[in-house]
Amino acid sequence: MAGNSFGSLFRITTFGESHGKAIGVIIDGCPPNIEIDEEFIQSELDKRKPGQSKITTQRKESDTAQILSGVFEGKSTGTPIAILIPNEDQRSKDYSHIADKYRPSHADYTYQQKYGIRDYRGGGRSSARETAARVAAGAIAKLFLKQQGIEIFAHVSAVGTLEAPNLDSTDLTKLLDVRESNIARCADPATANEMISLIDSVRKDGDTIGGKIATIIRNVPVGLGEPVFDKLHADLGKAMLSINAVHGFEYGSGFSGSEMRGSEHNDIFVKENERVLTRTNFSGGIQGGISNGMDITFRTAFKPVATIMRDQNTLNEAGDNTSISGKGRHDPCVVSRAVIIVEAMAALVIADHLLRNQAYAYGK
Results as ranks from 00 to 15, higher is better:
Lys327Thr: 15
Ala338Ser: 14
Ile324Met: 04
Leu232Arg: 14
Leu143Val: 12
Lys142His: 12
Ala139Asn: 05
Thr14His: 06
Val334Ser: 10
Thr79Cys: 14
Arg129Phe: 01
Arg185Gly: 01
Gly116Val: 03
Gly326His: 01
Arg118Lys: 01
Asn166Ile: 08
Gly78Met: 05
Val178Gly: 08
Val349Trp: 01
Gly288His: 09
Lys212Arg: 13
Phe302Trp: 05
Asp205Asn: 11
Glu35Tyr: 07
Met260Lys: 11
Leu348Met: 11
Ser336Cys: 15
Phe282Ser: 15
Gly16Asp: 03
Val25Phe: 04
Pro227Glu: 12
Arg129Met: 03
Arg337Val: 05
Ile152Lys: 06
Gly262Asp: 01
Ala184Trp: 07
Ser53Ala: 00
Phe40Ser: 12
Ala301Met: 13
Asp63Lys: 06
Tyr102Asp: 01
Ile117Met: 11
Arg203Ile: 00
Ile150Tyr: 06
Met345Ala: 07
Gly210Glu: 03
Gly78Trp: 10
Val202Phe: 01
Leu315Gly: 07
Thr297Leu: 06
Gly254Phe: 00
Ile199Trp: 07
Gly160Trp: 06
Phe282Ile: 09
Ile41Leu: 15
Thr280Val: 04
Ile34His: 02
Asp207Arg: 04
Gly289Met: 09
Thr215Glu: 03
Lys231Val: 04
Asp94Cys: 03
Met195Thr: 02
Val135Ala: 11
Gly206Arg: 04
Lys101Glu: 09
Phe153Thr: 09
Asn281Val: 11
Gly211Cys: 00
Asn357Val: 00
Asp46Ile: 07
Glu317Gln: 10
Val156Asp: 13
Val270Gln: 06
Ile216Gln: 09
Ala245His: 00
Phe229Trp: 11
Ile213Val: 08
Ser127Arg: 04
Asp168Phe: 08
Lys212Leu: 02
Pro32Asp: 15
Tyr102Pro: 10
Ala361Ile: 10
Ala192Pro: 03
Glu194Asn: 10
Ala133Lys: 08
Gly284Gln: 03
Asp331His: 07
Thr307Lys: 02
Gly70Ile: 10
His353Asn: 08
Asn266Lys: 13
Thr14Ile: 02
Arg118Met: 01
Met240Phe: 00
Thr278Lys: 10
Glu226Ala: 09
Glu264Cys: 00
Glu259Tyr: 09
Ile243Val: 09
Pro104Tyr: 06
Glu88Ser: 14
Ile27Met: 05
Phe15Glu: 09
Ala158Tyr: 04
Arg279Ile: 06
Met345Phe: 05
Asn193Trp: 03
Val305Phe: 09
His19Pro: 04
His353Glu: 10
Arg134His: 13
Ala136Trp: 05
Tyr95Lys: 11
Asp168Cys: 13
Asn357Pro: 01
Gln113Arg: 15
Glu264Asn: 08
Ser5Tyr: 13
Asp46Asn: 14
Val222Lys: 11
Ile67Met: 12
Gly288Phe: 05
Gly252Gln: 09
Gln312Ser: 13
Ile81Gln: 06
Ser5Arg: 12
Ile36Tyr: 06
Glu73Cys: 14
Ile27Gln: 03
Ser242Cys: 09
Ala306Gly: 07
Ala107Lys: 12
Leu348Gln: 09
Arg299Tyr: 03
Gln90Trp: 08
Asp235Ser: 12
Gln287Val: 08
Gly70Ser: 15
Gly293Phe: 00
Ile286Ala: 07
Lys212Gly: 03
Lys49Gln: 05
Pro32Gln: 13
Ser127Ala: 03
Ala301Phe: 12
Glu35Ser: 12
Arg179Asp: 05
Ser263Val: 11
Ile324Val: 13
Phe298Tyr: 10
Tyr115Ala: 06
